[in-house]
Design a protein around this nucleic acid. Structure first.
Lengths: 182, 182
DNA sequence: CTTACCATGTAAGGCGTTACATGATTCA
DNA sequence: TGAATCATGTAACGCCTTACATGGTAAG
């Protein structure tokens, strides 16, 4: 049975904010949701098709400047379906950090090698943090009162808090390993 | 091609510490690695079979108190294979937090509902944190000098730092939502 | 004119979970 | 004697990624 797939809810959630094309959905996922979720076109387009079959969304073809666009809109049934899921308790939160795997087995590779992995991890984390900090600024200065933004902002704050903790840990871990190296 | 699977490395990494049965490997994953990795028997046993076919590990049948046990041992080729992977840079660190998904779309459900999700998340986080804190104590008081423990301890510290950041965030988020509720 | 971006979609194939199946041993 | 734990494994099936395929438009 495998865990129930979540992409339908992700898409309906995005459509609950505004009507979107598949391409735009992908962009939202790669920006606003990227620090805690991901999806590829290979799963987005088929899911969109399913949603239409299930009457949870409707598809409309438009032409913006001669360019074909398939815009998806959530239906009342889709809204109800999403609301139902929102009421249910969370099934799973999961983290898969290859960096920690390489750390766990770090004795094999030695302190020097492990320090390289930590350095790379710190750099990536700094970049993601910078991105979220600008997102936070944008949201806090937004002309405001759209409560949608408030919830988005909460997830951004989560990312910021996590990444800051990661960076602190990077410093600690690097120090410990350097001592071990000597 | 999908991302290369990591379970073979996870298993070899564990076997690099000591010879183990499939059952014991599962237990290690569910305890020592659980805060950043997971795997089920349905993937562990087939992977173990592959490792033997590839001569990266050997299988030996023993009987402890009449009970059959298949003990796996890493080979020199397996050690080399693991070492090679340890040298390569990390491909992917990923987080999939359904809680954040429900938060992102929280406007649909309202502040009260969202607070419930945050409460559940806090509770789970507290439990995981408590577990890691005892693990930390155990490792720090260990008669020592096994450097394997030092690396394990680093991953534990990572979890502790993350979970503490999560809990701080829970307080902030709850406060913000309560204000909104009023 | 060419690069970047907008835009939609399919096919192949790997990965990994859940559920199922089986059975021994230890401990209360 | 029954529950928990030790122990190994397979089958079905769903999910998702990568790679491929195609083509229009905007901007420099």
């Amino acid at each position: 049975m495998a865990t129930e797939k979540k992409l339908n809810y992700v898409i309906l959630g995005l459509l609950s904010h505004e009507a979107l094309t598949g391409y735009e959905i992908k962009k939202r996922i790669d920006t606003a949701l990227s620090h805690f979720w991901g999806a590829s076109y290979g799963s987005i387009y088929p899911t969109l098709k399913e949603l239409v079959v299930q009457s949870l969304a409707t598809k409309e073809e438009t032409h913006t400047g001669g360019r074909k666009r398939l815009i998806y809109t959530i239906t009342p049934a889709g809204t109800a379906y999403l609301a139902q899921w929102m009421k249910e308790s969370v099934e799973k939160d999961e983290l898969r950090y290859e960096t920690l795997l390489k750390l766990f087995f770090g004795k094999e590779a030695g302190a020097a090698q492990t320090l390289l992995h930590i350095g790379a991890f710190r750099k990536k984390t700094e970049e993601k943090l910078a991105y979220l900090l600008t997102a936070q600024q944008r949201l806090e200065q937004a002309p405001g009162s759209d409560t949608t933004h408030d919830y988005y902002l909460l997830t951004v704050k989560f990312g910021i808090a996590s990444y800051r903790a990661y960076l602190d840990w990077c410093s600690d871990a690097a120090q410990i390993l350097k001592k071990e190296e000597a």
